[in-house]
């Protein structure tokens, strides 16, 4: 019970402001890694994923929990700290889980041709997040960036849907990076 009530932002307005700036920079500069802090969600969820949830979700944002993230402790924590309604993948505005657990990705909303913004944001928990591996180019990247992605095919397929598609926030420990649909992803 105690784990549910603790681990939120102690000073929500300023902590979420700092967290959002990191998220803003991350989404603006795909592949670049930023450190965040302030959330202590129950295991197995990372600090960074907790920060993203506290900063972006609330009672108005349907959330899907996949795999290990779909656990009693986290459901309680989310209910107490954000109030986000938990839903099936195809209803979700946000989704949280490991890369494999989030599959099949075709379940998630990719927006509508006249409203491409009505798409899901996936918070992807990774064991490893380093500036090496897949080659990223596109908006927000001056020349190229490198990021340790779990695969590239799914992101290429997503890029093929542009301006539709989902967007990803990649989390690992207290660090995060983002991969919007606009990024062109190639194998290392």
């Amino acid at each position: 019970m105690n784990a549910i009530l603790t681990g939120g932002f102690a000073a929500p307005s300023t902590q979420s402001a700092h967290a959002f700036r990191a998220l803003l920079e991350a989404m603006a500069r795909p592949g670049r890694i930023f450190a965040v802090m302030g959330a202590e969600p129950p295991a197995p969820i990372s600090v960074a994923a907790g920060v993203a949830l506290l900063t972006l979700t609330d009672a108005t944002t349907p959330l899907h929990l996949a795999g290990a993230a779909d656990c009693e402790a986290l459901r309680g924590w989310i209910g107490f700290h954000t109030g986000a309604p938990l839903v099936a993948a195809d209803q979700a505005q946000f989704a949280l889980g490991g890369w494999d657990a989030l599959h099949p990705l075709s379940r998630f909303r990719i927006g509508e041709p006249s409203y491409p913004d009505r798409s899901a944001t996936l918070i992807v928990e990774l064991d490893r997040l380093e500036a090496q591996g897949a080659r990223l180019t596109g908006p927000g990247i001056e020349t190229e960036a490198r990021l340790s992605l779990p695969e590239t095919a799914a992101f290429r397929a997503n890029r093929g849907l542009f301006p539709l598609g989902f967007d990803c926030i990649l989390t690992c420990g207290a660090r995060l990076a983002a991969l919007p649909r606009s990024t062109i992803v190639e194998d290392a």
């Binding site: 307005s13 979420s16 402001a17 900063t55 979700t57 944001t121």
Partner: peptide, 26 residues
Amino acid sequence: NFAYLDEQTKRMIRRALLKALAIPGY
């Protein structure tokens, strides 16, 4: 509140900003 807007409003604007960055010019 800090920077006038309430937190729920800020979250709503922040979500819109992230989508705006993901779909440049939209």
